Deep mutational scan, measured.
Amino acid sequence: MAAGGDHGSPDSYRSPLASRYASPEMCFVFSDRYKFRTWRQLWLWLAEAEQTLGLPITDEQIQEMKSNLENIDFKMAAEEEKRLRHDVMAHVHTFGHCCPKAAGIIHLGATSCYVGDNTDLIILRNALDLLLPKLARVISRLADFAKERASLPTLGFTHFQPAQLTTVGKRCCLWIQDLCMDLQNLKRVRDDLRFRGVKGTTGTQASFLQLFEGDDHKVEQLDKMVTEKAGFKRAFIITGQTYTRKVDIEVLSVLASLGASVHKICTDIRLLANLKEMEEPFEKQQIGSSAMPYKRNPMRSERCCSLARHLMTLVMDPLQTASVQWFERTLDDSANRRICLAEAFLTADTILNTLQNISEGLVVYPKVIERRIRQELPFMATENIIMAMVKAGGSRQDCHEKIRVLSQQAASVVKQEGGDNDLIERIQVDAYFSPIHSQLDHLLDPSSFTGRASQQVQRFLEEEVYPLLKPYESVMKVKAELCL
Score class of each variant (00 low, 15 high):
409 Q>N: 09
425 E>H: 13
421 N>L: 07
368 V>N: 01
248 D>E: 09
449 F>W: 07
146 A>V: 06
273 A>G: 15
474 S>D: 13
290 S>I: 02
123 I>N: 01
368 V>Y: 04
2 A>F: 15
48 E>W: 03
317 D>L: 08
290 S>Q: 05
281 P>E: 15
286 Q>V: 03
412 S>L: 13
49 A>N: 02
412 S>H: 15
260 A>V: 04
368 V>H: 06
59 D>W: 08
285 Q>A: 15
22 A>V: 11
442 H>C: 12
484 L>D: 07
50 E>S: 09
438 S>F: 11
100 P>G: 06
135 L>D: 03
20 R>F: 06
144 D>Q: 14
474 S>N: 15
189 V>N: 11
390 V>R: 03
344 A>G: 14
450 T>H: 05
285 Q>V: 14
245 R>D: 01
375 Q>A: 06
74 F>H: 09
45 W>A: 11
423 L>Q: 06
404 R>M: 08
260 A>K: 01
424 I>D: 06
39 W>S: 08
476 M>Y: 15
398 D>H: 09
158 T>Q: 00
353 N>V: 09
322 A>I: 13
426 R>W: 09
360 E>Y: 05
144 D>N: 13
55 L>H: 09
448 S>M: 14
298 P>G: 02
437 H>T: 13
476 M>D: 15
455 Q>V: 10
80 E>S: 13
9 S>T: 13
94 T>S: 13
45 W>Y: 14
186 L>A: 10
125 R>T: 07
232 F>Y: 07
468 L>T: 13
164 Q>C: 08
317 D>W: 07
97 H>V: 14
148 E>Y: 11
210 Q>P: 09
377 L>R: 01
145 F>G: 05
12 S>V: 15
395 S>G: 11
408 Q>E: 06
459 R>N: 14
46 L>I: 06
33 R>A: 12
84 L>V: 03
184 Q>H: 10
39 W>P: 00
294 Y>W: 02
284 K>T: 15
193 L>I: 13
276 K>N: 04
75 K>L: 09
60 E>R: 10
133 P>T: 14
144 D>T: 15
346 L>H: 12
357 N>D: 11
82 K>D: 15
124 L>M: 09
342 A>L: 06
363 V>C: 08
238 I>S: 06
41 Q>V: 10
23 S>N: 12
45 W>D: 11
380 M>T: 01
334 S>R: 05
221 Q>M: 14
36 F>V: 14
306 S>G: 07
455 Q>T: 11
434 S>Q: 10
234 R>Q: 10
331 L>K: 01
323 S>N: 07
98 C>R: 11
176 I>S: 03
108 L>C: 14
389 M>S: 04
51 Q>L: 09
253 S>A: 13
44 L>W: 04
37 R>D: 12
377 L>M: 07
159 H>Y: 01
170 K>N: 01
386 I>T: 10
255 L>Q: 06
252 L>G: 13
314 L>D: 05
160 F>L: 04
338 R>W: 04
115 V>I: 14
404 R>S: 08
